[in-house]
Amino acid sequence: MTAASGGDLFEYLLRLGDTSLVLGHRLSEWCGQGPALEEDLALANIALDLIGQARLLLEYAGKVEGQGRSEDDLAYLRDGRDYRNLLLVEQPNGHYGDTIARQFLYDAFAVELWGELTRSGDVQLAAIAAKAVKEHEYHWRHSSGWLIRLGDGTEESHAKMQASLDRLWTYTGEMFADDDVEQAIQRTGVGPDVATLAPRWNTRIDPVLSEATLTRPVASWMQRGGKEGRHGEHLGHMLAEMQSVHRAHPGAKW
């Protein structure tokens, strides 16, 4: 077991679980509307990977919290302000290039983060990571391949891809900014120092950006707040839709 206090570990598991859940739900919104049948399935597969991770993480978070909340309680009965996901993943799908840019920026981070978490001092989290890291490696291959195709595609796809990157760039700083919770997590050997992931993230994305003939956006102001529950305008709408069935039929099963 770990020496991190239950409160910190609970918060940290929510951050991981909510990030997977929100991104998984966003991708599921593409279901039936993908640009091609094959790509529709690919995105649905990735969504299912992420929702599977969220289930494990939120179930574990509920146990750590010790107040009897299940994964469903945590997913369906919390409001936006209680969600701890990264701002990046709650951004709307937009066009396909927007979705790919969001996925690319997150996947490069997720592969590094979850690779570190396989060595977590928390046995349960390390076991979840062992499964998750393989999934993220595949997601990264998918999103980086598409970034290159669209970036180095036609004049129009290139311009759209660059605009998507520029627009989302402001949400990338939050991934590498720690706070009290993450410092405690790091001290107790549960998770990595996220600041050390930044150079590895750069090493991962820079060659792909240049192969895609895209320009790395210049960092200016970086948004923060998702990990503390301060979200943008889009998350509430997404949650309202995601939670509507559960709220209309509490406890329903099939």
Partner: peptide, 14 residues
Amino acid sequence: HAADPAMALEHARD
């Protein structure tokens, strides 16, 4: 359907 063999492999996997 796929744009190239690499994409075909990924689609086939999925």
